[in-house]
Computed example of a mutant assay.
Amino acid sequence: MSVFSRTLLVLGLLSLFHAAYSAHEFSAIATKLHVKPDLPMDIKLETLTAVVLACFGLVLGSEPLRPIAWNVWAGNIEKEGGAANPFRALEERSNYVDIRAKRREFAEWAKGGGGVVSSE
């Protein structure tokens, strides 16, 4: 994050905390007076400005976006290697198990008394 983006973020967060504190104080005073008016416009504007400043600081300080095009993204993943590939587990998985062959194998094993199966 650059100094400018950090400054905007800190300024926005401090202003947001101040707006929240002002809203709390206003509601406390209004409760003591048994009045329920809306928040003053300056507190609403301070809150909106603080949120916009904080969001702008976050956006300016974020890392560059990755490409959206699938072929560009896949090319970058292949250049980087295996650890960054999110589909590596799917590409390297073993083939499906042949259930019928396994059942036949088990039936033969069970008929033979359940001994050790030879690997022929």
Rank of each mutant, 00 (worst) to 15 (best):
E105D: 09
Y21G: 12
R66P: 10
P67A: 14
L16E: 07
A54R: 05
R103L: 11
V97H: 03
L65H: 05
S2H: 09
F106P: 00
F56R: 04
R104K: 05
A28H: 04
W109L: 15
R100C: 02
F26L: 07
E46T: 11
T31H: 06
G75E: 13
L65S: 13
V97N: 01
V117K: 15
E78T: 14
A20Y: 03
A50E: 01
R6W: 00
A54P: 04
L9N: 02
A50R: 02
A89H: 06
V117D: 00
M41N: 09
S62C: 15
I43Y: 02
E105V: 02
G113A: 11
W73Y: 14
F17H: 03
L48Q: 09
E78Y: 08
R103T: 05
E80H: 09
H34E: 12
G82H: 04
C55W: 04
N85K: 12
A110L: 14
I29L: 11
L65K: 14
H24C: 08
V59A: 13
S118E: 11
R66V: 11
T31D: 08
V51T: 11
A19P: 02
A30I: 05
T7F: 12
V97Y: 04
G112R: 09
R88H: 03
F17M: 11
L39Q: 02
A23N: 02
V10C: 03
G61S: 07
L14G: 08
R103E: 04
A84V: 13
A20I: 15
T47Y: 10
P64D: 08
L48Y: 06
K32V: 06
E108G: 01
G82R: 13
S62D: 09
R88G: 03
A101I: 03
P64T: 10
F56Q: 06
G113E: 02
Y21D: 04
L8N: 00
L53W: 06
P64W: 04
L58N: 07
R66C: 09
E105M: 08
L48P: 00
N85Y: 02
M41R: 10
E80F: 10
L9S: 08
R88V: 02
R100T: 07
R103Y: 01
I77V: 15
R6N: 07
V10M: 03
D38M: 09
N71H: 14
E63W: 04
L8R: 01
V117I: 14
L45K: 06
R88S: 05
S15T: 05
Y96C: 10
N71T: 15
A19S: 12
A101G: 01
H24G: 06
E120K: 12
S94V: 12
L14H: 00
V97C: 09
F26G: 01
A69E: 12
N76Y: 04
I29K: 13
P40L: 02
N95G: 15
S94M: 12
V3W: 01
E25R: 14
G81C: 11
L90Y: 05
A28L: 14
V3S: 06
N85I: 06
L14K: 01
G115I: 14
N71C: 12
